[in-house]
Design a protein around this nucleic acid. Structure first.
Lengths: 151, 151
DNA sequence: ACAGTCCGTGGACGCCATCGACCTGAGCCT
DNA sequence: AGGCTCAGGTCGATGGCGTCCACGGACTGT
């Protein structure tokens, strides 16, 4: 992970569809060299995936909410996690410090669906209680912070 | 936005680096047709960006925290937002229902940096108080939920 | 000094992106 | 009905790109 790798990571976080030729121009290497570096970054788990970022509203997911989950004392955290993983509406899942073990971010189409989802989460074994906060608007999300000093 | 568009969106959310030729094969159209559809999806704001998803740990951002922000009564929300936007460590920013106007997700290298960041957020004009929760681990993040029925 | 390794370059070749020309079907006007 | 128009597709061509390979220079340990 030298400076060039960091530049490549930054470039691809900004635009994952840049061609290797273009990346090569930006970092001052040849295309095959960049190809190999990016391949190694993927293999090393630095780059996990390339994703199109989609406006949730336009695909009918207008409601974003964050749900804090308190576990039952004696609940098996792994089981709860597994149950959560099976719920596709849970977009992100953090294991937190504090009384509320999990914070999950969910995305659904309507408030009615959110209600059903909350019930479902509350009913999963090991969950003692939940607290839901609704996001009125998403100002921004997953903004990549630059990691390489601008060349 | 017909079924083919939804498939394209799903495919690109799964792998943003798929070639147009490959997308074309998957949806049963020609490459130029797919090229035009994807272009329109971008122009319409459905696809906002293509991003490489990077493991934060590997680029030295080991600490994730969520900070709830309570505004001063009479604070100008837009000013607060603008100030937040200038803080690169704030990766996501939601405007919430409830007493705590904002929920922000931040990513920093160390706990010491988190402390400095919290101080900085607290000091921005319009912010009355904050409440920080540290994510001990990220189970998953930004998992795309499929929107098109699997063909 | 020498061999091995790492990491790059340059060339070659097939595939892909992308443009323009053309085709087809739906909707609409007369 | 017939023909116009337009949206949105296919096809073909071409230039650039991805990717494989052989090769070469800088470091390193012996």
């Amino acid at each position: 992970m030298d400076a060039i790798d960091l530049s490549l990571v930054d470039l691809l976080r900004g635009n994952a569809r840049l061609s290797y030729a273009e990346l090569a121009r930006q970092v001052g290497l040849s295309a095959p060299a960049v190809h190999e570096r990016v391949g190694k970054l993927e293999a090393a788990g630095v780059i996990r995936a390339y994703r199109a970022e989609v406006d949730p509203e336009t695909i009918g997911l207008s409601v974003t909410a964050l749900i804090s989950v308190v576990e039952d004392s004696g609940a098996d955290t792994d089981d709860v996690l597994e149950a959560f993983r099976a719920i596709p509406e849970i977009e992100s899942c953090y294991f937190m410090a504090g009384v509320e073990s999990f914070l999950i971010k969910v995305r659904v189409a309507t408030i009615a669906e959110l209600e059903r989802l909350i019930v479902r989460v509350n009913r999963t074994p090991g969950v003692a209680s939940t607290r839901t906060s609704i996001a009125l608007s998403t100002k921004w999300e997953n903004r990549p912070q630059p990691v390489a000093p601008p060349s």
